[in-house]
Design a protein around this nucleic acid. Sequence first.
DNA 1: ATGGCCGGCGCAGCCGGA
Length: 259
Amino acid sequence: MQIATWNINGVKARIETLLAWLKEAGPDIVCLQEIKSVDDQFPRLEIESAGYHVETHGQKGFNGVAILSRTRPDDVLRGLPGDPADEQARFMEAVFSTRRGAVRVASLYLPNGNPPGTEKYPYKLSWMKRLERFAAERLALEEPTVLAGDYNVIPEPRDAKNPAAWTGDALFQPESRDAFRAIEYLGYLDAVRAVTDEQVFTFWDYQAGAWQKNNGIRIDHVLLSPEAAGRMRAARIDSHVRGWEKPSDHVPVIVDLDL
DNA sequence: ATGGCCGGCGCAGCCGGA
């Protein structure tokens, strides 16, 4: 079972690119972030025609997440628990039946948090604390759980082409990195880091020829509970998609689980 | 990563992104 995450940067502007990648890669489940669409305007018909069920959690203008899947989920949760006042559409979870039992898949779009010194940064850190609590609760179920998305965290210096340039940025602040590591230390595996020690990226800015210079960062991650990690066959980043027409600035990250 | 962009909203230019 192939499970992917991709910050699509506007699903309506990106529908042709998305359909081309679905056809090429044929994933079973796809977590999308930054759909920038309300639920009613999501390009549902095109994606259903490609053979996918669609569940969305959108809002007007920005943010928004979705989960596409070959089979219909048994259950869907919208919104990250822990703060009823949080209006931003950044999290959803779907539960699927497999021949080996249930798998839980979350699509998350963690706040950017820039610039530190504004209210955006504590919002990021409190959101991460809520995510840690959610991750701990799911861990207690002792079932395969996949936490996939745009974490907006550069975990280590080797996850940036030019780490010095990110000093002071919310994506690379010690508190952000600590909060990411705290979730790993609960018992979750960073799937891509488990399969390679190479410098690999998932995001290249549109500006200043970042893609051509390979000036990227690794901020899109798939974290696996022990029950999912034990079933991992492979993990990869589809970097070539960044070179397509009308690309997102992020590329898909895919894990293959024996489920 | 500091020169260079992009999508949404809505019809001009600003907001948000990373």
